[in-house]
Design a protein around this nucleic acid. Structure first.
Length: 467
DNA sequence: TTCCAGTTGG
DNA sequence: CCAACTGGAA
């Protein structure tokens, strides 16, 4: 059905080397001393999610007490569970018990050499079915466990993520072709054994590997780069500076763009840290926009809080920066003395003080990392909320104080994420009525927790969730 | 603390 | 697609 051209090593060479290696290096395990399909089934079920050393004594005891499917089927579930005690995943035990009863009722107490029938047994998925059929009956059915995935991905240089459908399909297809030769059972076990003992997740022993010369991953010199995981490619990691800016008892919020991430929701002013930019420079761009909106310099304090936020396709590492009107006395516990950092700043980029301390590598020459806030994530759905009082560009009441000192448009370049015109000053009490993403709610709660006058009583217990 | 593992069921 | 199950290792 699938005959895509094969890349990578020659299948026959891989097969013969694997089997040769397996015959000489396989571990002597009790379930390898039998080809009784029932015993193989028991061992494979026990080995799901469980390491060999743990399984060993359980397997021996279990087969002593239940040497056949009939014995197992006749036992009480309590007794089966007792023997399983300590192995974990007790559902496996119940399902194996059920499977034994199916074998007795439908197949005369024997495991039938029939892929459909085996696969249909309770607790038997694709992997276990393949293992039983190939090991016990020498049928050319693939058995792709995590070890096999790793071996195949490395040997053949599979670049599709192994934890995504396309990658799994590709690996399964490879396994299917590979097993289609002599001694399928030995071949499958060889692949898995190699993965377990040589082609380890970390520090693979390529020097001891029979496939090293053929192996795409080994030849790159960085075999650990396989299997490719969606993990490493899925997230777009972004650093985001967020401002908690209070002036005259109001807090600055902005409106996110109507398109894209969290479209149209209100947010604390934020900006993504750009390539080659340090946190402070990102903060300065925020400062430029906000100070233009206020019309006078603000006093900025060091980042006081940071956290992580996961979206479906990106991960934000955020840091919160506090600002207030320079004319007011400092308040709140965070950040310590504002001196030094709190220099005056002009409005827009053009008037920024050039004297930003040279920060060298912008990603490291930063201030010390602020305390962390528990991570969380946010899908997108947020209830419709109230427009803030005095929201810019919405008719209604005039924009509350302070008035912009210069055209906000001049600062449009400061942050690409939202238009400076959307900066809106909201009373603390009104903040919680805005439609905001959970991210901002969480930041707000964190601010409140730090005594910075955020919305009172905001809980901080959003559970971690991925979308 | 985070990652990982097969199968099932939502 | 993803949570739940459960325990071990990095």
């Amino acid at each position: 059905m699938n005959d895509a051209p094969m890349r990578g090593p020659d299948l026959e060479a891989v097969r013969s080397r694997l089997i040769h290696w397996y015959d000489r290096h396989r571990r002597d395990l009790p379930w390898r001393r039998t080809r009784d399909p029932y015993a193989v089934l028991v061992s494979e079920v026990m080995l799901q999610q469980t390491r060999v050393e743990t399984v060993l004594p359980y397997y021996v005891r279990f087969l002593q007490r239940f040497p056949s499917a009939s014995h197992l089927a006749a036992a009480s579930e309590d007794e089966v569970l007792r023997l399983w005690q300590g192995l974990g995943y007790y559902r496996r035990a119940r399902q194996l018990h059920q499977a034994a009863r199916v074998l007795v009722e439908r197949y005369g107490g024997q495991v039938p050499p029939d892929p459909e029938a085996v696969r249909a047994l309770p607790g038997v998925g694709d992997y276990t079915a393949g293992a039983v059929l190939s090991i016990a009956f020498d049928l050319p059915v693939p058995a792709v466990d995590g070890n096999a995935q790793r071996v195949l991905a490395r040997v053949f240089g599979v670049d599709e993520p192994a934890d995504q459908a396309a990658g799994r399909r590709r690996l399964h297809d490879l396994a299917r072709r590979l097993v289609d030769g002599p001694r399928p059972g030995a071949l499958n076990q060889a692949v898995m054994e190699l993965g377990a003992t040589v082609c380890r997740p970390r520090r693979p022993g390529c020097g001891d590997c029979p496939l090293a010369e053929l192996c795409v991953a080994a030849r790159t010199g960085d075999p650990e780069a396989w299997p490719v995981r969606r993990r490493s490619g899925r997230w777009v990691e972004e650093d985001v500076a967020i401002a908690w800016c209070r002036v005259d008892g109001r807090v600055a919020v902005v409106r996110r763009p109507q398109e894209g991430l969290l479209a149209g929701l209100w947010a604390l002013p934020y900006t993504r840290r750009r390539d080659g930019e340090g946190w402070l420079e990102a903060r300065d761009r925020l400062a430029a926009a906000l100070e233009a909106a206020v019309g006078r310099p603000l006093r900025w304090r060091r980042a006081t809080l940071q956290g992580r936020w996961d979206f479906s396709h990106r991960r934000w590492h955020w840091r919160l920066f506090l600002a207030d009107d320079a004319g007011e006395r400092p308040e709140g516990p965070a950040g310590g003395p504002a001196g030094g950092r709190g220099r005056l700043q002009g409005g827009c980029g053009a008037s920024r003080p050039a004297g930003r301390p040279a920060t060298g590598d912008p990603s490291t020459a930063d201030e010390p990392a602020p305390p962390r806030v528990p991570t969380g994530s946010d899908g997108a759905a947020v209830a419709e909320g109230l427009a803030p009082w005095g929201s810019a560009g919405e008719g209604g009441e005039p924009s509350p104080s302070p008035a912009p000192a210069r055209p906000l448009r001049a600062c449009a370049a400061a942050t690409a994420e939202w238009a400076a015109e959307t900066i809106t000053w909201v009373r603390l009490a009104d903040l919680e009525r805005l439609a905001m993403a959970s991210l901002d709610r969480r930041v707000l709660a964190a601010v409140a927790g730090r005594g910075e006058g955020g919305p009172r009583g905001a809980g901080a217990g959003a559970a971690e969730r991925r979308d």
